[in-house]
Computed example of a mutant assay.
Amino acid sequence: MKYQGVPPPLLDAVLVLLALVDTWGNVDLGQELAVACALLGAFALLLRRRLPLTTFVLTLPTTLVTDAVFATLAALYTLSSLSRHRGLLVGCALTYSIIDFLPWPWSTLRVGELAGPNLVHLIYTLGTAAAPVFLGQLVQAHRELSLRLAEITKAREHERLLTAQSVLAKERAQLAREMHDVVSHQVSLIAVQAGALQVAGGDAETKEAAATIRRLSVQTLDELRHMVSVLRASGSRPTELTPQPSLADLRTLVEGSGIDADLVTDLPDNVPATVQRAVYRTVQEALTNVRKHAPGARATIQVRRADGTIRTTVTNTAPVRPALPLPSAHHGLIGLRQRAELLGGTISSGPTPDGGYELLLELPATDAP
């Protein structure tokens, strides 16, 4: 066993020294065989970590021919602390007990001597052999438990790290959606209004100020596009915003869009909140695209419910002037399609015969399972 703060080589040296002291106190130095066996057992302890079973076997002769048993018990303890083979440990313990119990040389053994007081000696020998085995198994269990606790602690740290990363990814996705749905919407409106002011301005100073506002708005949109792309790289599923818009905010959205648009809706108030948000974001994105790609066009927004399906249609006429070169991250329709799929609906878009454009969102009237 590796004790904390005690280097293994030093501990092995201490065990060898204790085995030599046991030899000096229990072995007649005049008996060469006994001394040789005791020295073999003592120095064999240096191999106990790498070859525990071999070390135990090498220490058995000292128990057989002498009363020095420290080396054998130390080797038995080491074997028990490192081995999982219970049968082997029982066999080694019984081997030690029998060798220690039987007298040496075995030729002096008499059957009658096995009864009486010697039975107590046998029980004592068995208990002596069992002690290092139990202690070694206890140390092994403690060591394995410590390793398991360390693994559990490491796993929990890893789990906490993954949880923190997941929360961060959701926050990034939420921020990306907010920047796209809210900030870019307002900035693009500023750019469109500035462009209109630049065209209709009566004096050079007004036109120059409008051009500056438009240029800065376009730069801001471009920077927002890069920021949204970075934030979306987290791979997290888009999250909703707080506070969330509803159908009651549609008219305010249309009136503030800067587009000549008509809103027709007949939806009741009991539409699920998730469906209301999806309809709002779809109309918002469609109006943003009209401002970007169809300047001067007229838009019609229809939100109706029929046969358990809520159908939102945003149609615009052909543009009356060239579109402004505003940057786009191309995430708008992708985000709308993902939102619709999560709610069990579909979204489609495409040009109309008169040169305009139409976007159609169909959602079930209830939350998707």
Rank of each mutant, 00 (worst) to 15 (best):
L109W: 15
E178V: 05
R160T: 11
P117Y: 15
L162V: 04
E178D: 07
Q186A: 15
K207W: 05
A196F: 06
E178K: 11
G87E: 03
A130V: 03
V111Y: 12
L145Q: 13
S184W: 01
L122G: 02
G87T: 10
Q165D: 00
I99R: 10
E171N: 06
E205F: 09
F134H: 13
N118H: 15
M179Q: 08
L168S: 06
R148K: 09
W104M: 09
A129P: 00
E205G: 10
A130H: 02
K207C: 08
S188V: 07
L175Q: 08
E144C: 05
Q165K: 10
C92P: 01
A176L: 02
G127N: 15
V139C: 04
L102H: 04
V192P: 00
D100H: 14
H158C: 03
G201L: 01
L126W: 08
L197Q: 04
V182F: 08
L126A: 05
E113I: 01
A155T: 06
V133E: 00
A115Q: 13
V90T: 09
A129N: 03
G112Q: 09
G136Q: 03
L88Y: 08
L122Q: 02
D181E: 05
L89V: 01
E151H: 12
A204D: 11
K170I: 00
R143K: 15
A130Q: 07
F134P: 01
G112T: 13
V183C: 06
C92S: 08
V167C: 03
L138D: 12
E205D: 10
I190M: 12
E159Q: 06
E144K: 14
L197G: 04
T206A: 13
A155Q: 13
Q186M: 12
T163R: 04
A169S: 10
L114A: 11
I98Y: 07
T153S: 11
E113W: 14
Y124G: 09
S146N: 09
L126E: 03
T125Q: 11
V187L: 05
A164F: 08
L89E: 01
